[in-house]
């Protein structure tokens, strides 16, 4: 008994998990869609990704140095934000745009509120919306996949203000594999879903939020189109619904912690998305919907607190 014994509060076992493991799992899940974005949009996509990730990491280091708190870039959360931000941008944006987005996402949305876990909005998504509002033309410089970068409309414009798919719309196969215009990472529904399955398998997320979110949009578009299954499918596979529902509406920090709260949250996201897409001014509503619901989280959490084991209704005194 030469050394002193460690005395600490129970429990004395801890599960082999960490923020880092979770974040790296998210990064791994995003890899298929990331590779696809480089495949479809070539070198510019790779540059934007690189710049975005590096500026997120650098911003985190700088802000944490200024805040005089330990630098935590090893936890992988800034890496994930960098990837998500890049995947949310069109491949045609000038390279200063991801830098600006990263500084906003990490510096303001995340670190200003206390760092990882303390942000009340999804940083990448907040940055996307900030950029969309501030640089509308650059953020809608959609091009068709390929080297020629031919300007084009996004798939959602083929259903905007219509109750059926219009002529010239991309095929379901193209939507699935991502051979369509749009933000870099939101093009291939299939690869995003594969990543999502990986996250569910790794217990990082449950199907609850993406499931309820997507189902809500499905039901809304089905009703709106008078039960046109093709119209509904087109809506589900287009735009940012998959990347939003699987990777951004599941962001821990900015979603409810209660089981029931997560369902209401996803339901709200779905209703708002469908409302904006079907009745609003924008063709896409995923980003706004998730951010709006992010701000509702404290309220949702408060009213959906689980009933404590053995809780009995207070008798009227």
């Amino acid at each position: 008994m030469s050394d002193r014994l460690i005395v600490s509060s129970s429990p004395h076992l801890r599960e082999d998990t960490s923020i880092q493991k979770i974040m790296f799992d998210v990064a791994i899940a995003l890899i298929p869609a990331t590779i696809a974005s480089i495949y479809f949009f070539k070198a510019p996509a790779a540059m934007i990704l690189l710049i975005s990730i590096i500026s997120c990491l650098v911003t985190e280091i700088v802000v944490q140095k200024i805040r005089r708190v330990p630098v935590t870039i090893h936890d992988g959360s800034a890496l994930v934000t960098g990837m998500l931000l890049a995947l949310n941008l069109p491949a045609t944006v000038p390279l200063w745009l991801p830098v600006l987005g990263s500084v906003f996402a990490i510096g303001i949305v995340k670190q200003l509120f206390g760092g990882v876990g303390q942000n009340f909005m999804n940083p990448a998504l907040a940055a996307r919306i900030m950029l969309t509002i501030s640089y509308a033309d650059r953020m809608t410089g959609w091009v068709e996949p390929g080297v020629d970068a031919v300007s084009t409309a996004t798939p959602l414009t083929y259903v905007k203000d219509f109750t059926a798919i219009q002529q010239g719309a991309p095929s379901f196969v193209d939507l699935l594999i991502g051979n369509v215009s749009g933000s870099m990472g939101e093009t291939s529904a299939l690869l995003l879903i594969i990543g999502g399955i990986y996250l569910v398998y790794r217990n990082v997320i449950t199907v609850k939020i993406p499931g309820v979110y997507i189902l809500t949009v499905a039901i809304a578009t089905l009703l709106y189109s008078g039960f046109d299954i093709q119209y509904m499918t087109f809506h589900l596979l287009s735009g940012s619904l998959m990347i939003g529902a699987i990777y951004m509406a599941t962001d821990y920090a900015s979603t409810p912690v209660t089981p029931r709260g997560r369902i209401y949250f996803a339901l709200g996201c779905g209703i708002l998305t469908a409302t904006i897409r079907l009745f609003g001014g924008y063709a896409e509503g995923v980003g706004f919907s998730i951010l709006l619901m992010n701000t509702m989280v404290p309220l949702i959490d408060r009213y959906t607190a689980p009933k404590v084991f053995g809780e009995v209704k207070k008798q009227n005194a």
Binding site: I19, I22, D75, G117, Y252, A253, T255, P256, V257, R262
Partner: peptide, 8 residues
């Protein structure tokens, strides 16, 4: 310990 990330 690190920050709570509200993973629930």
């Amino acid at each position: 310990p690190e920050n709570c990330i509200r993973c629930s």
